[in-house]
């Protein structure tokens, strides 16, 4: 079977899988991004069992990464667990929305041996707690950081640099419109 044929089979597999998942774990949203990638949204407390099911019964043995998207306007974090099934060559992103206030999530370090590294990073960069995850409170990338977690949307990198570093002298740019106005029509137009 050629690659295209394989893809068709996989697409059907993905659709059926998503239906199964929706029935079993009440996924409130399913999004098929492409033939070999779908996203599922599950409830915070059902995540662990959903991941466990995908890993042991559906062949999604590989955890590609764990990440989070900060929706500051709506007050929640969207965690994303990206799994991969080598036999079907398909990715599935399992997503969970958690509140932005005192965020905390169940740890998955017992499902994947590298899970705790991601959780340690998320704790440091977003302030999301994973109770029970090994070394979750240790510094990961930062050293002696006392500000808010720096990957949060409200952390202003430009302001951070302005506060911390001296501005280089002689760096001034002129506004095109204002320059032309001053030079060509200083007394016309807006008053």
């Amino acid at each position: 079977m050629g690659y295209a044929g394989l893809q068709l089979v996989n697409t059907m597999f993905m659709q059926e899988l998503c239906e199964r998942m929706t029935r079993q774990f009440d996924c409130d949203q399913v999004m098929h991004q492409k033939d070999d990638l779908s996203f599922l949204r599950v409830d915070r407390d059902r995540l662990e069992s959903a991941l466990m099911y995908l890993k042991t019964h559906e062949g999604f043995v590989h955890l590609s990464f764990v990440t989070v998207i900060d929706y500051i306007e709506d007050g929640f974090f969207r965690l994303n667990y990206m799994l991969y099934n080598y036999d079907k060559a398909t990715n599935i992103g399992v997503q969970v929305d958690i509140t932005r206030e005192n965020p905390s999530m169940h740890s998955i370090h017992h499902l994947w041996a590298q899970g705790w590294t991601y959780q340690r990073e998320l704790k440091e960069m977003y302030g999301i707690d994973f109770p029970g995850s090994p070394r979750v409170d240790e510094e990961f990338v930062l050293e002696g950081w006392d500000g808010i977690p720096p990957m949060l949307r409200e952390f202003d990198t430009a302001k951070f640099c302005e506060d911390r570093f001296a501005k280089r002298d002689g760096r001034e740019s002129q506004d095109i419109k204002q320059t032309m106005r001053d030079n060509l029509y200083p007394e016309r137009g807006e008053s």
């Binding site: 760096r171 001034e172 740019s173 002129q174 095109i176 320059t179 032309m180 030079n183 060509l184």
Partner: peptide
Amino acid sequence: AIDMVEIAAKDSKKGDSGL
């Protein structure tokens, strides 16, 4: 890395800011 600056060799004119 880029600033737009005025130079002596060039003046503003219509269609050209001179910067």
